[in-house]
Structure formats: structure tokens, C-alpha cells
């Protein structure tokens, strides 16, 4: 199979479309590429498919400001033209942010993107000071025990959180800014940590603001 031209698209998942599942979002992106009449490459075999791959999935309800996909094109198209074509056929809430070509040899998004930056908005009466204290206590304990799909799971917070979470006051709600390292064996969901600190009744809104590649200790955006 020819290598083609690997177009990396940064897009968002915001507003009411944060309620899409990863599968729904992926399908929407593929259909947008078709509507945009991008010269997309197709896999060989009995069930030919568009050659597209995505970065780490976002849960239903979580927004993302800089999400990524790689789409293989059969011929070169100026990135600004691809961007324009995609923008004109996509709902504003999941519109492309920017796009550019990457080398065919570049590692896949799923394996390269290991750092995720989140804003977690907390509503439900807890003060920034209280939240900071209980987060601090969790960090001091060093590990977080949770149950995921009925199975106990333990996170080592020093590994999972390469930076200390920061608590800020944001209008009516409290904002927790946190950076999470995504591992091969699952990554810590920010809402799990924050609700452990803020209590089950707190209402959370999660926004993944950035996805980064960690390259010899240096963090950089994939575009």
C-alpha cells in the first residue's frame, strides 16, 4: 500500500456535541472528510475503509479543544484548502482547528500522545480552599484506589500526575487545572480524582484543553 500523504487534523469537540461518544465522533469525522471531498485513501481488502486514525478517546460528556486525527490522502492538497473544505461541512462544535502534513514514519497518535491537559469545572458548593486541601491530602497519600467496571484499580498519583493539580476560582464554580500522563494500562480520568476530592454530589464539567507528545522529557504539541 502506498504511503500517501498523512494529513494531521486538530479539531475540537465542544458545546453540546461534547455528549458524543468516541465512536460517534469518529464516524462524524469520516463523514465530514467524505462531504469535503478530500482525496482520502482507502484500505485494501474485502471491506475497504477510509484510512483514518484517532488520538486517545474522549468520554461522553467530556469536551476537547485540541483533539487529533490522521487521515491518509492519495494526493497532496494544501493544508489550508483541506482545512477550509472540512470547516465548511462540519458543525461548529466539532470544527477543525488546524491541520498540517506529518511524515509517514511518525508514530501513531494513539501511541505518541501521552500527556493530556484538563480543565475540570466543579459546581456544588465546595470552596477552592476546601478542594485544594482535599486534593492535597489525596496527593500526599500517593495512591488512588477506584473501582472501574467492577474491578479495583490503583493509580500511583506521582506517575499519573506529572504536575501538581492547581485549584482556581472561576466565577460561580471552582476550576481544577490538571495534567495527566496516559499509560498503556489506562489513564486516570480527571473526574475520578476530582470527585474523590470534592465528593460525589459535586457536578463536574471536564474539558481536555491539550494533548501533548512527550519527547525525551520535553512536551510538545503534535502539530
Amino acid at each position: 500500500m502506498s504511503e500517501g500523504f498523512r494529513l494531521r487534523v486538530c479539531f475540537r469537540k465542544t458545546g453540546r456535541l461534547r455528549f458524543l461518544s468516541h465512536l460517534e465522533l469518529a464516524r462524524a469525522c469520516e463523514r465530514a472528510a467524505r462531504r469535503a471531498r478530500l482525496p482520502y485513501a482507502v484500505s485494501q481488502g474485502f471491506n475497504p475503509r477510509m484510512r483514518v486514525s484517532f488520538g486517545p478517546a474522549l468520554p461522553v460528556g467530556t469536551a476537547g479543544e485540541r483533539e487529533y486525527l490522521d487521515l491518509v490522502l492519495t494526493r497532496y492538497l494544501a493544508p489550508e484548502d483541506a482545512h477550509g473544505a472540512l470547516t465548511s461541512v462540519t458543525a461548529e462544535e466539532i470544527a477543525p482547528v488546524t491541520c498540517a502534513y506529518v511524515s509517514p514514519g511518525e508514530p501513531s497518535l494513539a501511541s505518541a500522545l501521552t500527556i493530556a491537559v484538563y480543565d475540570v469545572y466543579v459546581e456544588g458548593g465546595i470552596s477552592p480552599e476546601e478542594l485544594e486541601r482535599s486534593l492535597g491530602a489525596l496527593m500526599d497519600a500517593g495512591t488512588l484506589h477506584i473501582e472501574h467496571k467492577g474491578k479495583p484499580k490503583v493509580f500511583d498519583l506521582a506517575t499519573a500526575l506529572p504536575k501538581e493539580p492547581k485549584v482556581e476560582s472561576e466565577g460561580e464554580s471552582v476550576l481544577v487545572r490538571m495534567t495527566v500522563r496516559m499509560g498503556e494500562h489506562g489513564s486516570l480520568r480527571p473526574e475520578v480524582l476530582v470527585s474523590a476530592a470534592a465528593g460525589r454530589d459535586a457536578r463536574l464539567e471536564v474539558n481536555r484543553t491539550d494533548l501533548l507528545i512527550e519527547d525525551e522529557g520535553v512536551w510538545r504539541r503534535p502539530l
Binding site: 458545546g15 455528549f19 461541512v89 462540519t90
Partner: peptide, 23 residues
Amino acid sequence: LWQQVAPLLAQVERPSRYVDREW
């Protein structure tokens, strides 16, 4: 009614059923 509908969506199955904004 969106302001009343949105808070319910975190508590239901398949919320994309209710959000509109499709192409």
C-alpha cells in the same frame, strides 16, 4: 429549554439522541 435539558444529559444513556447539531 436547553438550559433545563443539558443537566439531564449527564445522567442518561446515549445523550447524543437529544442534542441536535447534526449535519
